[in-house]
Nucleic acid binder design. Structure first.
Length: 465
RNA sequence: GGGCCGUUAGCUCAAUUGGGAGAGCAGGGGCCUCUUAAGCCCAAGGUUCCGGGAUCGACGCCCGGGCGGCCCA
């Protein structure tokens, strides 16, 4: 069998990892010999040549161990060892020992260069600092910065815990279309694409909501989807054009059930990901043990505006920019978003958004100006909306038409009338609660990350050229 | 879209009010048989993001642009 052209090994059998050896032998006396021969692999992190002996740190994401090379043991291979550099992948074999200074080491009998790093490596002390390159070349960020690895692992665990938590409670995960003939389920500008053989424009979904509700019509009682949404809007520390959202629906429930569920879910996920319910956030601590519940209209009143007065005048007085065409509810929400939302640092359910801005939620059971639509705010960020879901096809059509008539925002962000969805509702959708949970922002909270780009491995950036 | 800040060697960063660009690390050569941010010696490394302008003289000042960060819309 011919050797590969570059002679590099195709595989390497390990008997242990650096982290496992540290766990087993981490407290040996200086100058100890274990009699254990091991084969370990990893990436060279530092090298220290010292005449007829040399050292290198070999590490992976789970730990590191020192390689101890002696010219009298390695013979001709000693020169090759000295040629190793930072970033090289190496498989090594030898006895597990400690040096005179007590450092746990592999006393090398042999080693293989598994892959060479051909480019200059970031500074070994500081790691890669340049924010732009950390995003464009995330592999270097991960390879040199422990913080980047911790965030990635926290995100992975968060997603895994959410899936397990929901599954344990009877929620079924589904996948609904990413390509939508009509963008729906949210107020947002979509990305447009085109299907050649069907000859139609399609939209990357802005939300899966209307498809998940079709599944409620089909009889699914507890259903969720955890995947990407796409919105053709600006990028900021809280927005990426593609972002990850959990949407979950529960038949026979309402928005108070969804608030209970969110509270319990976030608490359990925080506990398993961070080990506690108090998470540091910038300069303060956020206590996920207590979730306040307060009506939006009361928050606006607390902010010094009278919801029963002329809201355009109130906006004027408070310095909130507005469009005179906006309806009452839009003005009310504008005051809330500009004056209140960013001040809600501790977990807060903001209850009962106005009907004008909430076309998919049921009218409030006692106050018809509002809907049973809440938003969970933590750290000043919208983390999760939840509704008592509108299931009346006649009212749904009327709400869509009110949206299409304008007033609530730019035309390309208004709901378009999805006849197929209305047909589904006409077959009967059970009463249900639904929620959306922004996964990126939740991970920001759990990892004290100030920017969404810290928790998305490859965030949207302008092309370099 | 607006404002402010940043952009210098492969990386991390310096460079009084405008006077001719430096260090550490990495990479190259040499010494060294227990180092661990190894150490010591030597050499090399630059279109100071790009384009224009004022000045005897620009990394620095002015104008325009790129990319990034933060804040605002």
């Amino acid at each position: 069998m011919p050797a590969p052209s570059d002679g590099a090994p195709l595989r390497f059998d390990r008997t242990s990892t650096p982290g496992e050896l540290v766990a087993k032998h981490g407290s040996l006396e200086p100058g100890a010999s274990t009699g254990e021969i091991h084969r370990v692999a990893g990436r060279i992190q530092t090298t220290r040549g010292h005449g007829k002996v040399a050292f290198a740190d070999l590490g992976d994401w789970g730990g590191k161990i020192q390689l101890f090379a002696r010219a009298d043991r390695l013979g001709d291979r000693f020169e090759d060892f000295l040629a190793l550099g930072v970033g090289d992948w190496v498989g090594a074999s030898g006895e597990v020992v400690t040096t005179r200074t007590g450092e746990l080491s592999i006393l090398l009998d042999g080693f293989e260069l598994l892959a060479k790093s051909r480019r200059p490596w970031p500074d070994k002390r500081s790691g890669l600092q340049d924010v732009e390159r950390r995003h464009r070349q995330r592999y270097l960020d991960l390879a040199t910065n422990a913080r980047a690895r911790e965030v990635l692992m926290a995100r992975s665990k968060t997603v895994a815990e959410i899936r397990r938590w929901l599954s344990d409670r009877g929620f079924i995960e589904v996948e609904t279309p990413m390509l939508h003939p009509i963008p729906g389920g949210a107020l947002a500008k979509p990305f447009v694409t085109h299907h050649e053989t069907l000859g139609v424009d399609l939209y990357l979904r802005i939300a899966p909501e209307l498809y998940l509700k079709r599944l409620l019509v089909g009889g699914m009682e507890r259903v969720f989807e955890l995947n990407r949404n796409f919105r053709n809007e600006g990028v900021s520390t809280q927005h990426n054009p593609e972002f990850t959202m959990l949407e979950a629906y529960q038949a026979y429930g309402d928005y108070t059930d969804m608030a209970d569920l969110l509270e319990s879910l976030i608490r359990d996920v925080a506990q398993s990901v961070t080990g506690g319910l108090v998470v540091p956030w910038h300069d303060i601590d956020i206590d996920l043990g207590t979730f306040r519940r307060v009506r939006l209209v009361d928050l606006v009143r607390e902010a010094g505006a009278d919801p029963d007065a002329d809201l355009a005048a109130e906006c004027e007085r408070l310095g909130v920019a507005f469009d005179p065409k906006w309806p009452w509810g839009k003005l009310l929400v504008e005051i809330y978003e500009k004056k209140v939302e960013h001040t809600l640092v501790q977990p807060t359910f903001v209850l009962d958004f106005p009907r004008d801005v909430s076309p998919l939620a049921r009218t409030h059971r006692t106050d018809p100006r509002f809907t049973e639509h809440l938003e969970l705010i933590i750290g000043g960020m919208e983390i999760a909306p939840a509704y008592s879901e509108l299931n009346d096809p006649v009212e749904q059509l009327a709400r869509f038409q009110a949206q299409a008539d304008g007033a609530a925002g730019p035309e390309d962000e208004a709901h378009r009338i999805d006849e197929d969805f209305l047909t589904a509702l006409e077959y009967g959708m059970p009463p249900a609660g639904g929620l959306g949970l922004g996964i990126d922002r939740l991970v920001m909270l759990l990892t004290d990350s100030p920017s969404i780009r810290d928790v998305i491995l490859f965030p949207a950036l302008r092309p370099e050229d």
